[in-house]
Design a protein around this nucleic acid. Structure first.
Length: 258
DNA sequence: AAGAGCGCCAACCGCCAAGAT
DNA sequence: CATCTTGGCGGTTGGCGCTCT
């Protein structure tokens, strides 16, 4: 291990905060095309003003094709509680037992729901001087809160930057147009590349910064409308990107049937 | 109606381990 | 072996939305 630690990126030049649809698309498209051998250089090559770590997190937690979203099943929650008893806060280890679930998600669920539930049950059990402490006793699913959370989530975040489309459906974007969960039209990245009318991601660095990449915004605008249609160039003014982004997200949501 | 408080969760931060040089 | 780089992990936080008063 080294002495000091160089910052993973120049913090002054990276964007922070929630990811936009545009950024997600860029990341997905790049990884689909080139994979992610090097997270550090990925953002630069993909034309993202993000830290490599941030890209990795975004991919692992939300954009990965096999990531499972939505409420945890009672079985999953039971598994988490059981594994937590033996593994402690080893979220990645716990996650490895729950296909499609991420350590971050499990950590959140534990901290927000399961911990309280287990504590409550434990307290109840202690006050009743109960000798039983098995997880099956600890776990009662009658107050399954995650369902409400999910419903709320889907209602309120249908077009949020972080879940504007179903990331789990973005599997093999270049080929797959339907997924098993339904007939969902997936945005074909090759089609996007064609729209861009250029080699998707040249081996070198993409020089186009987000705020002036008119073609890219135009492309996204086209994605946001169904069917695709010629469209006047969108605003290149960064201050207007949010609105533009919302429109694109909404269109994208419709496009994907989310 | 509006402000305060709370819950949830996506994302960031810092540390550590492993691999590369 | 020492140093450097990168990926991964777990803890924490900021912001948003909902509920309560």
């Amino acid at each position: 291990m080294g002495k000091g630690r160089a910052p993973c990126c120049d913090k002054s030049k990276v964007k922070k905060g929630p990811w936009s649809c545009e950024e997600d698309l860029r990341l997905i498209a790049f990884i689909q095309k080139h994979g992610h051998q090097n997270w550090r250089s990925l953002p630069k090559q993909a034309g993202l003003l993000r830290c490599g770590k941030s890209c990795r997190l975004r991919w692992i937690n939300y954009l990965r094709p096999d990531v499972k979203r939505g409420n945890f099943t009672p079985q999953e929650e039971d598994t988490i509680v059981k594994l937590h008893q033996t593994l402690g806060n080893k979220w990645s280890k716990i996650a490895s037992h729950l296909p499609g679930r991420t350590d971050n998600e499990i950590k959140n669920v534990w901290n927000t729901h399961l911990k309280k539930r287990v504590m409550k049950k434990l307290e109840g059990a202690t006050s009743r001087s109960s000798s039983s402490s098995s997880t099956s006793v600890l776990l009662s699913h009658t107050d399954h809160t995650s369902k409400n959370v999910t419903e709320k989530e889907e209602a309120t975040k249908s077009c949020s930057p972080t879940s504007s489309y179903n990331a789990s459906s973005v599997s093999n974007l270049s080929q797959v147009h339907e997924i098993s969960s339904g007939n969902v039209n997936i945005v074909d990245m090759d089609w996007i590349f064609q729209l861009m009318n250029e080699e998707p991601f040249p081996s070198g660095v993409i020089e186009t910064p987000l705020e002036c990449d008119v073609d890219f915004w135009d492309m996204l605008d086209i994605i946001g409308s169904s069917p695709p249609h010629p469209h006047p160039p969108p605003n290149s003014d960064y201050s207007k990107l949010d609105n533009h982004s919302d429109a694109s997200c909404q269109g994208l949501s419709n496009e994907l049937g989310v």
